[in-house]
Nucleic acid binder design. Structure first.
Length: 424
RNA sequence: GUGGGUGUAGUUCAGCGGUUAGAGCGUCAGAUUGUGGCUCUGAAUGUCGUGGGUUCGAUUCCCACCAUCCACCCCA
């Protein structure tokens, strides 16, 4: 047996969980003030949901899904993204009968993609994301982009760029596809192999190709922004106006096309410029056709996903992680075996008084207990030995100032709680 | 899926075709038996990634596999 986590997965160790919790707190706070409520959907869904929702021509569906048959011979897939499951939930429980818009967020949402791991890319990763249904207005798109932007900046991140684009709707996109294919047809021989495949399947993705060879060929290519219908164009202008009014800096980037099929109109990314290269922290957009495509009513939708591991990596790179919190307020040192239970009683009393308290369980020397308390960053230490039991008095030592208060043992939890609280 | 780098203690890494494989950090213990941070002393922990091959002899050289990291691809 190989005692090793599967490829592309990560353990969150005790020392690292506080930074996740810190991130979660900020995300929840950001959602709460915008009226988004948390939802939790299953880790796996019927494979068909993703085939239809994400799109069966996408790379995510074609080669990155964790798909298997369960014992009832159902095809099951571990979710590769967050939106499809939320839409399924919406339909299954007829949430669209509630007042619009329906605003939902998810946090620590585990997603799975079978890819070769590298920095910022795990096989299991966690997304924070928003979905809002039932409102077509671009102010909603702007609200979400602003929420993501303010969240990231509030976390202390800088070197961020917001890129927005509109990829039109089923009404105007075909015209763009035709124009683009017309432009590309004369240059096919110069494009990379992948792009030649994309030409028939999804020509818009060629714009997204990172190959310098292909980029070279794309000079003078038609822009989707010149082909938008009136409705999409107005929507895009509304979005820009709203973002401007909210002081969210943004760049129009007609190269953003996104890899998931369900997007319409708005698409956006928030990119962090790491020293090693750009990293997309957040990606999302509008998907007005998705709910209907999955068998529901015609219902507009907007959402984004934010990679939690990537945000944490950016925070680490920029040194804006939260400071390490002390583990305990008060450490109770035990001097002598007969005192073991009274020490636990005192520790428990301190905990009941609302303090973070700990004691010795391994029988260390007093000196070693002080060292241990120091490593836990304990702010106070109490020594409980036979002397204290006899006299009924204990000394509370402030580890920073070395001052000691003498207190009656009987009333210790309340007295100590007062002192510690006053000190905070 | 393609290409490249790296696998030695808990961790970061030295090291060498030849006896019992090392260091810093960390852990544990001690520095006259009831008081921490600094310092000093000591201790424990290794199938040298796995399996083959070359060799009198391999942790060291070669091959394969596995893992990991990085880039491409893709994306959060």
């Amino acid at each position: 047996m190989q005692m090793q986590a599967p490829k592309g997965t990560l353990d969150i160790l005790p020392a690292l969980s506080p930074r996740w919790q810190y991130l979660e707190e900020h995300m929840r706070a950001a959602c709460a003030c915008c009226g988004y409520r948390e939802v939790r959907t299953p880790v796996f869904e019927h494979t068909e949901l993703f085939l239809r929702g994400v799109g069966d021509t996408t790379d995510v569906v074609q080669k990155e899904m964790y798909t298997f048959n369960d014992k009832g011979n159902r095809s099951i897939t571990l979710k590769p993204e967050g939106t499809a499951g939320v839409v399924r939930m919406l339909l299954e429980h007829s949430l669209y009968a509630e007042p619009m818009p329906i605003k939902a967020y998810y946090l620590n949402n585990p997603c799975f993609r079978y890819e070769k791991p590298q920095s910022g890319r795990m096989r299991e990763f966690h997304q924070f994301g928003l979905e809002a249904f039932g409102a077509a207005n671009a102010t909603l798109d702007a609200e979400q982009i602003a929420l993501a932007w303010e969240l990231l900046t509030k976390l202390g991140l800088s070197d961020l760029r917001v890129h927005i684009n509109s990829i039109g709707c089923p009404g105007c996109r075909p015209a763009f596809h035709a124009k683009l294919k017309d432009f590309l047809s004369q240059r096919l021989g110069n494009l990379c192999a992948t792009c030649n495949e994309r030409f028939e399947r999804n020509p818009m993705r060629i714009l997204d190709c990172k190959s310098p060879v292909c980029q070279e060929q794309l000079h003078g290519a038609p822009s989707i922004l010149d082909c938008l219908c009136d409705e999409c164009n107005t929507h895009f202008l509304d979005l820009q106006e709203a973002l401007g009014a909210l002081d969210v800096p943004f760049t129009i980037d007609d190269g953003i096309v996104r890899g998931l099929d369900y997007y319409t109109k708005t698409v956006f990314e928030i990119i962090y410029d790491a020293p090693t290269g750009p990293l997309t922290l957040t990606g999302g957009g509008r998907y007005d056709g998705l709910v209907e495509m999955l068998g529901g009513p015609a219902l507009a939708g907007v959402g984004f996903g934010m990679g939690m591991e990537r945000v944490l990596a950016a925070m680490e790179a920029q040194g804006v992680l939260p400071p390490v919190e002390p583990l305990v307020d008060v450490f109770v040192c035990v001097q002598g075996t007969p005192v073991r239970v009274p020490a636990l009683v005192l520790t428990t009393g301190l905990r009941r008084a609302g303090l973070r308290a700990d004691t010795d369980y391994v029988g260390r020397s007093l000196k070693a207990q002080f060292k241990y308390a120091d490593k836990c960053a304990a702010r106070y230490v109490v020594v409980l030995g036979e002397q204290e039991l006899e006299s009924g008095n204990i000394k509370l030592r402030n580890m920073a100032t070395r001052e000691e208060h003498e207190l009656p043992l009987a009333d210790a939890p309340r007295r100590i709680a007062d002192i510690v609280q006053a000190d905070k």
